[in-house]
Simulated assay, not measured.
Amino acid sequence: MARVAIVTGGSRGIGRATAVKLGARGDAVVVGYAGNADLAAEVVREIVGAGGQAVAAQADVADEKQVAALFDLAEQTYGGVDTVVNSAGIMVLSPVADIDLDDLDRMHRTNIRGTFVVTREAARRVRDGGAIVTISTSVVGLQLPSYAGYAASKAAVEATSLILARELRGRQITVNTVAPGPTATSFFLDGKDQETIDRMAKQPPLERLGTPEDAAEMVAFLTGPQGHWINGQTIRSNGGII
């Protein structure tokens, strides 16, 4: 019987690459998306076209009723939930002195509250032996100017994941965080000039930006049998930038 994965933020970027990767290895995938139904449908078609199983579902990760419905769909369609990857997130950059508090609240609603809502549901519903993965950022360690609000929200994600891993003792469920470095997605690239992109690409010793597939490979490892001994960790998948 196929394992069942829920991937939030699954319509683009790292979430999309993760959904496709898990579908290719045989998982039945529920592709969660916030608003772009067309992009989510493309992901489903890609997975199904390659012989996999997938369905798309809209859910605001900070809305507990919508997230519960996402898990209901997975259980009703595929019989249960084994893997949850919370890739949904937003980023607003600003110096602390200038930050718009509405932007800060919006970012923390998705990144912090959304993580709590999704992982709370996962803690209740993931079958024993499963895996939960959250997505952070290497900026938590790099501490770059203008990233304070975003980094603070993701530091909360890392702390929550470690504590949840300890709380799930006895159920053989792993909880880990993947923290990519600069990654060539619209999420990272939008609003940056080419000089900034080139400079950041040169930072890691491997001298390139990460790809969504780099992060997806790590998620696949952590949620597969080979990675099951890794638990309560934040993996900085960033080419050696820190």
Rank of each mutant, 00 (worst) to 15 (best):
G141R: 15
G149W: 12
T160F: 01
A179G: 01
L206A: 03
D190H: 04
E207Q: 02
S136C: 08
L189E: 11
L144F: 12
M200V: 07
F187Y: 09
E217Q: 15
L168T: 09
I197Y: 11
Y150C: 09
M200S: 07
A123V: 12
T160I: 02
R199Y: 08
I132E: 06
V139K: 08
E217N: 14
L144M: 06
E121H: 13
P180Q: 01
T137Y: 07
L162N: 02
D198L: 12
T174W: 04
V140W: 08
R208H: 06
L209M: 03
P212S: 04
V117C: 06
I197P: 13
Q194H: 12
P182R: 00
S146Q: 15
Q194F: 15
R171Q: 05
Q143F: 00
V175Y: 03
D214P: 09
K154F: 11
G149Q: 14
L164K: 01
A155V: 11
K192I: 11
S138I: 14
V219Y: 00
T119S: 14
E121C: 09
T183D: 06
T160A: 04
V139W: 07
K154C: 04
G170I: 05
I163R: 10
S136F: 13
T115E: 11
I135K: 14
L164G: 01
Q194I: 12
I132G: 03
Q172T: 08
L209I: 01
I197Q: 12
T211A: 04
P204C: 03
P180T: 03
N176W: 03
P212D: 00
T160H: 05
Y150W: 13
A184I: 00
N176D: 10
R113S: 15
P205D: 15
L142F: 07
M218D: 02
S138C: 09
A156V: 00
A131E: 03
T115W: 13
G129Q: 06
K202H: 10
I135E: 05
N111A: 10
D214M: 03
L144K: 11
L209F: 00
F221H: 12
F187H: 03
R171M: 06
A148R: 06
S146E: 15
A148T: 14
A156Y: 02
R125M: 02
V117N: 00
I173S: 02
E195W: 15
S153H: 14
D128C: 10
S161T: 15
D193N: 14
S161P: 10
V139Q: 02
M218F: 01
E158S: 01
A151W: 05
A156N: 01
M218P: 12
D128R: 11
N176K: 06
A159W: 00
A151P: 07
A122Q: 09
Q203A: 13
V118K: 04
N111L: 09
R199W: 15
V139A: 03
I197L: 15
S146C: 02
D198Y: 06
